[in-house]
Structure formats: structure tokens, C-alpha cells
Nucleic acid binder design. Structure first.
Length: 300
RNA sequence: GGUCCGAUAGCUCAGUUGGUAGAGCAGUGGACUGAAAAUCCACGUGUCGCUGGUUCAAUUCCGGCUCGGACCA
């Protein structure tokens, strides 16, 4: 099994900075594990590493998709696994860093996505209520229907489409063992929640100062507002401002709120879905502890 | 100075024909297998501004006060 170092944690906690430090110290290359930073052009709002911050460290799976491209877990899983292989073969350390829980989990575990991504035409289901769709799924894939809440329309439809195409979601999942296919050292970065909030607010204000509005105005005038990349926090909230439907202040307030809520969901995921070893960045010796733990991991 | 309106959850507000109250948002916890920065679920006790009075009982009715806001001077 290949070894991989993984850095996770809520947004704004400092994953990027740690990743570069580790890469430099342990001869590593970084693989982005973040669903929004893969997009070209989403720089300020996605808090993407700058050239300066990279300090010469090689970064993968960043800036490699057009805004209008679709992107999904399966693509990430495939591409990231390739990168881990390549980096390992060079004798270097693969460091995955990102906040997208599902992506990281699908990468590390034996999640299996068969076939090609299905184009889902949601309009096809417009005339049905949640209850009706759920009922329909119950007939085609009872297991999945049980696992998905009736109000979670998006997931019900996904499972429905899969069942109709001949691959039951529940069966696809049953084939998996639920074990990791890498030897992973999962580092979780954390800090006091109240102070993280404060930090998030400051970071959003800084993004505005650094020209997030200019960045988005540019992008919005060049790409469809429905582009997948614009579902990212920091972008979708500024669309109403771009369309002159809302004032800037309230849009910025929304960015802050959504970022906080996102951070909370990230905690829920990383606390409950993966074996994360947490390090509090406010402990004076957290870096040293990480260094020695990583060293032990790489030598062990 | 006078008149009127408002004061209820962190915020915006609803409500109680008198029997101590509930929505949205925020917040907290949780779920998560092809859009995941997405999607979804659960959780609502707060001196009902303060103070007197009427009443078996007042957040609700009456008086005074305080603080907002509007209007008149």
C-alpha cells in the first residue's frame, strides 16, 4: 500500500500553509483535494494558493478545469490516484490537502464508481413530488430508498436515475468493502470555534479588499452564471450584486455566514467519517508534533 | 413640550377575545458513495422594556416611567 499524507480541516484554518511546509520538509508534492480550487479563475474567492505561497512546491489538480466544465468525485478519485502513483514512483511524498470530505474519503477508501457519469435531467421529474419520487425509488431500489430521506430530492433523483440505467446504487455500494486502499496519515487542523469564526470573517473582508468583486465581475461577464464553479462560496453570493439585485454589504454578509456553516459541516464530516488525528493550531508546539508524527509515519 | 406608534428568542417579527408564547433567519448536533463550498434531517424557557393598579390569574386590560421612531409645535 502506498503511503499518503492527508491534511483536512475546516476552511480558513491554515491547511495550505501547513501543506507547503510539509512538502518542503519531506520532499513532497501537493494534490489539491478541494472541489472548487480545481477551477481556473476562481482565485481570491476560493482562497487558492498563490504562486508566492507555493514556494516552488509542485501542486496538482489545481487550476486544471474550465469554469464551465463539470467536475465530480469520480473524476477527482481517478486523477488523484494517478497523481499519488506518479509522485510515489518518483520517490517523493504525496500530500493531499483539501476540505471536500467526500472527495478525500472516495480517494482513500475503495469507493467504486462504475460506468460514466449520468447526465441527469431534473426537468424530467418536475411534475413529481418528493413523496412520489421516493415511492418510485422504493419500487426500483428499496435499499437506497430506505437510506435516503424523502426530502432529499437531489439524492433521490440520482438513485432513481441509476436504478433506471440498470445500476442500483445500493448494489454498487454493497460491492465495496469500506476499507482504505492507502496507508494514510490524516492530519486534521483545528482551532477554537469562536476564533475560527473571527478568522473567517477577517478572511472574507480581506478577499473583498484584494479584489474579489473585480474577480467575480470579470468571471460573471465571461461565463454562464450557471457554471458549476460558481456554486462555490464567495461566488454564488455575489451574483445578486452583479445583477444589481442586492447591495454589496448584504452579499458579503452572506459569504461569511455560508463560510461559517460550511466549516461546521466540515467538522461534522471529518469528525465522523474518517480517522482524523486532530492538531490544534493554537498549541505552541503543534507543528513540531506534526513533524515528528509524519516522520514516524514515513519511516514506519 | 404635545400626540401617535413600537418595545416578545442572538436578529426580524407573529400571537395570546386575560390562563406565563411561536415562525423565519442565525446558532448547535447529525446524515452523506458521480453537482458535496452541494443536498438533506433534528433541536425553540424567553425576567413577553420597567413599575404600580384591576383580577382567582396580567406578557395581554388601565396608569406612570424609560428607551426608540414618526408627526405636531
Amino acid at each position: 500500500m502506498l503511503k499518503v499524507i492527508v491534511i483536512v480541516g475546516p476552511t480558513a484554518v491554515g491547511k495550505t500553509s501547513l501543506s507547503v511546509k510539509l512538502a518542503k520538509r519531506f520532499n513532497g508534492e501537493i494534490i489539491n483535494g478541494d472541489s472548487i480550487q480545481v477551477y481556473k479563475g476562481l482565485n481570491i474567492g476560493s482562497a487558492k494558493v498563490t504562486e508566492d505561497e507555493k514556494q516552488g512546491v509542485v501542486h496538482h489538480l489545481i487550476d486544471y478545469k474550465q469554469l464551465t466544465d463539470r467536475y465530480d468525485v469520480a473524476t477527482f478519485q481517478k486523477d488523484a490516484r494517478e497523481k499519488i502513483k506518479e509522485i510515489s514512483e518518483k520517490g517523493k511524498t504525496a500530500i493531499v490537502v483539501g476540505g471536500t470530505g467526500l472527495y478525500i474519503k472516495a480517494l482513500l477508501y475503495d469507493y467504486e464508481f462504475v460506468g460514466n457519469p449520468i447526465n441527469i435531467d431534473e426537468n424530467k421529474y418536475n411534475e413529481f413530488t418528493n413523496e412520489q419520487l421516493h415511492q418510485k425509488l422504493k419500487e426500483l431500489d428499496k435499499q437506497s430508498a430506505k437510506a435516503i430521506h424523502p426530502n432529499n430530492r437531489k439524492r433521490i433523483i440520482r438513485a432513481l436515475v441509476m436504478a433506471e440505467s440498470g445500476i442500483k446504487k445500493s448494489e454498487q455500494e454493497a460491492r465495496q468493502s469500506g476499507t482504505m486502499i492507502y496507508r494514510a496519515k490524516i492530519i486534521g487542523l483545528t482551532m477554537d470555534r469562536a476564533r475560527l469564526k473571527e478568522r473567517i470573517n477577517q478572511r472574507v473582508d480581506k478577499m473583498i479588499e484584494e479584489g474579489l468583486v473585480e474577480e467575480t465581475n470579470q468571471l460573471f461577464s465571461n461565463y454562464s452564471l450557471k457554471s458549476q464553479g460558481f456554486t462555490g462560496i464567495g461566488y454564488k453570493e455575489l451574483i445578486p450584486y452583479y445583477l444589481k439585485q442586492k447591495d454589496l454589504e448584504s452579499c458579503v454578509e452572506n459569504i461569511k455566514t455560508h463560510t461559517r456553516q460550511f466549516a461546521k459541516r466540515q467538522y461534522t464530516w471529518f469528525n465522523n467519517q474518517m480517522p482524523v488525528r486532530w492538531y490544534d493550531i493554537e498549541d505552541k508546539d503543534f507543528l513540531d508534533r506534526i513533524y515528528s508524527d509524519v516522520e514516524e509515519f514515513l519511516n514506519g
